[in-house]
Simulated scan of single mutants.
Amino acid sequence: MKIERLAIPEVILLTPPRFADARGFFSETFNAARVREAGIEGDFIQDNHSFSAARFTIRGLHCQIAPAIQGKLVRCVRGAIFDVAVDLRVGSPSYGRHVSAVLSAENWSQLWIPGGFLHGFCTLEPESEVIYKVTAPYDRAAERGVIWNDPTLAIPWPAPAEAVVLSDKDRVLPPLAEVTPWFRAGG
């Protein structure tokens, strides 16, 4: 498995090998020992599967606070997405900064987003499917978010604003300046 730390080193891009032949391919997409060797802590307890029909669907920016803080291992198994992680750990040298990666069925990469980060993605192709493992169960009471186009974050989304498809919930998320700090670096 190829392992690459991004500009915020806690966010890790993993690319499992695919072994192809005339029948198709085989890939070990998750191995707990290899994931731990990469520095990813936490036990995965739930898998989620997301389907987005339209290109330029944005889901996010979301997180969960204590007691249900989630780390996520995200992969795209159909289509392609622009995946984003925003550091919300107050006291972190990268607080308020983001990193991104294109995840696709073609490149087969996965992105590890630890707890303390916002997560969101934009579909680059119609009918994109995303599967992600999480380290805590979904908890509606712990769910938080920040508006996708917050000018303070300046995320270079690959979609024109007028073409973006959002849920009603994501459309009314607050800007970062209006939220109470949810996470602290080192804790």
Rank of each mutant, 00 (worst) to 15 (best):
I3P: 01
A7S: 13
I8Q: 03
I8A: 00
I8L: 03
E10L: 02
V11Y: 04
L13E: 07
T15W: 02
P17G: 08
R18H: 05
R18W: 03
F19H: 15
R23M: 13
T29Y: 10
F30H: 15
N31H: 15
A32L: 13
G39V: 09
I40C: 13
Q46M: 09
S50L: 13
R55F: 01
R55A: 06
T57A: 14
T57V: 13
I58F: 05
L61A: 03
H62C: 06
P67M: 12
A68K: 13
I69A: 15
F82C: 02
A85E: 03
V86S: 03
D87L: 07
R89H: 12
H98F: 15
S100C: 12
L103I: 01
L103H: 01
A105Q: 13
A105E: 15
S109F: 07
W112P: 11
L118K: 01
L118G: 06
C122Y: 03
T123W: 00
E125I: 03
P126L: 03
E129I: 11
V130K: 01
I131Y: 02
T135K: 09
P137M: 12
Y138P: 01
Y138N: 10
Y138V: 07
A142P: 05
G145V: 07
G145R: 02
W148A: 05
W148L: 04
A163G: 00
A163N: 14
L166M: 11
D168I: 00
D168N: 14
K169G: 05
R171V: 06
A177D: 14
T180N: 12
R184G: 05
A185I: 00
